[in-house]
Amino acid sequence: MRTDIPQTIYLKDYQPFPYLVDHVSLDFRLDPKETRVIARFDMRANPAAKDQGRQLVLNGENIALKSIAFTGLEVPADQYTITNDKLIIKNPPREPFTLEIETTCNPSGNTALSGLYRSGGNYCTQCEAQGFRRITYFPDRPDILSRYRVRIEGDKTDNPVLLSNGNKVLEGDIKDGDSKDQNRHFAIWEDPFPKPCYLFALVAGDLARVSDTFTTMTGRKVALEIFVEPGKQDRCAWAMSSLKRSMKWDEEVFGREYDLDIFMIVAVSDFNMGAMENKGLNV
């Protein structure tokens, strides 16, 4: 049980983060007890920040750090500090750089159901409000907007469905002659529009799919997909109808046209938040 008293944060004390994160690349190697996350962040100094920073402070909880590098150069152990909730790196580059961080986490042991967790055989994420820091070290705050590319690798039997935000750009089987496990596959998703990390989502598991399409006001056809536990496909008709009417209402009332090629909903019994408005992948 947590006994610490929450700290009040006032708008008047807001300070921009010293660095911008233009692009996030995440590579997940799913495993029930030790999922490996290889993260690459394209970063640069934030011109709006008064303090450009002699150190880079990232949020992180309940994850194990394996390595850190700046644009391919390993960061020595005496150049960073790990606390219960932060990774503090000394003397980050002044020029734009790529921060590379490898961590592991335990989805099955994540009983907080915040970040990446596994329940009922399915992997899910819950990143609002501060769950992304349980996936990798990152400036876990809503004013950091980044474009995302996500690669997910998992077991084909346990996780035939691999989902994340954005558009799927590639998928296939893992063909590694040196690996004893040949029953793995991958999917790569790209979201070309910047978003905060609390809207990041990942779902992997054995799920059934119900499909339809929606034609936008400019004539673009968007794929609609609802994923449910096998045997519950007959419960999706109302949800699909509501989704299509909602998209049309957004266009008619606000002139807002959906900007991705696919819109997905995942409805599973084990999701703990009721519903979460992740970009392009509602859970």
Rank of each mutant, 00 (worst) to 15 (best):
L113M: 05
C197H: 01
Y148S: 01
P76L: 10
I89N: 04
P196L: 01
L163K: 01
G177R: 10
F28I: 09
W189I: 09
S146L: 02
D13Y: 06
Y137M: 07
R40D: 06
P96C: 10
G172Q: 03
K86Y: 03
R36N: 07
G60T: 08
T215M: 08
R141V: 00
E251I: 15
T3K: 12
F41Y: 09
V150P: 00
I63T: 12
S108T: 06
M1W: 14
M273W: 07
F132L: 10
N282R: 11
R2C: 14
F17S: 02
R134E: 09
P192K: 09
E95G: 06
I82L: 11
L56Q: 08
F17R: 00
L113A: 02
M247R: 09
P76E: 12
L30F: 03
I89H: 07
N167S: 04
P192Y: 13
M247L: 15
K66V: 14
L260Q: 12
D212P: 02
I226R: 00
K248N: 13
R2A: 15
S269L: 14
C105E: 02
C124E: 04
A223I: 07
T125G: 10
F138D: 00
A48E: 08
S269P: 09
S246H: 12
M240Q: 10
K66A: 14
G131K: 04
S67K: 15
Y14G: 10
T213N: 14
T216D: 09
T104W: 02
M247N: 08
A223P: 03
L145G: 03
D78H: 11
Q7G: 12
F28L: 08
L20Q: 00
P107K: 01
D31M: 04
A239F: 07
V75H: 05
D143H: 05
A267F: 11
I135R: 01
E102D: 06
I226E: 00
D212H: 06
Q233S: 05
A69Q: 14
I89Y: 02
V21K: 00
T136I: 10
M273Y: 08
I174F: 06
V266M: 06
A275Q: 14
I38Y: 03
T98V: 06
E171P: 03
T71G: 11
Q79M: 09
